[in-house]
């Protein structure tokens, strides 16, 4: 079976997406949740560049990927800052322990 390089990249994107979704579902540590989100965003960024390549408009794909990288970094920074403050306030990083909602 002869599979083109771009289809291989598409398989990689789906693989990273699957790992990211699985991680989000089973992870309870706040820092690890931020880490798993990074994996998901890398998958999306790769998909944007691939779409630009397939659509013969790689500049647009790169531009959108750069925006995604900036947003992703800010999400990581804010998420880590939240994790640090939560750890200081509640003494744990477990998302199940920090829920203060009743019911």
């Amino acid at each position: 079976m002869n599979i083109s390089p771009l289809n291989v990249v598409l398989l990689v994107i789906i693989g990273l997406l699957a790992v990211g979704i699985y991680g989000l579902l089973i992870t309870r540590n706040l820092i690890k949740i931020v880490l798993v989100l990074q994996i998901l965003v890398k998958s999306a960024m790769l998909a944007l560049v691939l779409a630009g390549k397939v659509g013969n408009n790689l500049g647009l794909g790169q531009s959108l990927a750069a925006t995604v990288i900036v947003a992703d970094t800010v999400v990581a920074v804010v998420g880590l800052a939240l994790a640090v403050q939560v750890r200081r306030r509640f003494g744990t990083l477990d998302v199940a322990d920090i829920s203060t909602l009743r019911g």
Partner: peptide
């Protein structure tokens, strides 16, 4: 590296 091979060197 994958991005570089795809031609998106800047990203």
């Amino acid at each position: 590296v994958i991005l570089y091979l795809l031609g998106a060197q800047q990203v």
